[in-house]
Write a protein that binds this DNA or RNA. Structure first.
Lengths: 107, 107
DNA sequence: TGGATAGTACGCCAAAGTTCGAACAATCCA
DNA sequence: TGGATTGTTCGAACTTTGGCGTACTATCCA
């Protein structure tokens, strides 16, 4: 299976990033990714069906927040730290810092 | 007319902030507010009907991003800088900095 | 008092988003 | 080869959002 497509760094939209982060499940996925560097879909600790999960991962990928690397039958997700820092310096760090200040599961 | 209600600083949700910022019109309003401190609804440079505008301002207010002060028949909007800095230090600055790096009108 | 001004609230509609199960595809390994 | 594993895609049901016009409220001021 081919590597899924990702937006070029230059075409990452700020509103798109915020949209991607506006869903609690996706925000939680991003927070989790910040702690492990690389993680496969089935290791995510989110109580959703795999099709829903796949959808959320697609949203994150298409917004330019994450990148997906194919390894065997698995897809390894990671944050696009360098690209995001290049395009919007300091934003990702501020987001991750903010996320750690908010109690987990505070809906 | 009474001052509209605003969420307490403690109950501002991160996902709610991102949702509020995920719409280009609202992001543009926030960017504009960062330059003028206080602005009334009709001075906003957004090509939308006043009912739609009112809706967006409500979303921003309820997310805890802005505060509204009533003065006569006007409502003066401003960013909740202090509250946001208290709850999520550095986040607002990073957002505003990122917004200035993105060309205006880049949809 | 009564018009002008500023904004909100409501109802409506179309578009977009969330969620799921079922079916499918790709890869590994015994 | 063929089963197990991992994830995508599709269609359906449902919710949310964004946009508008209209009607309403509140305030100012002549």
């Amino acid at each position: 299976m081919r590597t899924p497509s990702h937006p070029a760094t230059d075409s990452i939209q700020l509103a798109g990033i915020f949209h991607a982060l506006s869903d609690p499940a996706r925000l939680s996925i991003v927070t989790g990714l910040s702690e492990v560097d690389e993680q496969c879909c089935s290791d995510l600790d989110v109580p959703l069906s795999k099709s829903t999960l796949s959808h959320h991962l697609k949203v994150l990928r298409e917004a330019g927040v994450t990148t997906t690397r194919v390894e065997g039958t698995r897809r390894l997700m990671s944050l696009r730290r360098d690209d995001l820092d290049l395009r919007f310096p300091g934003l990702l760090d501020a987001v991750l810092d903010a996320a750690t200040r908010e109690p987990v599961g505070a809906h």
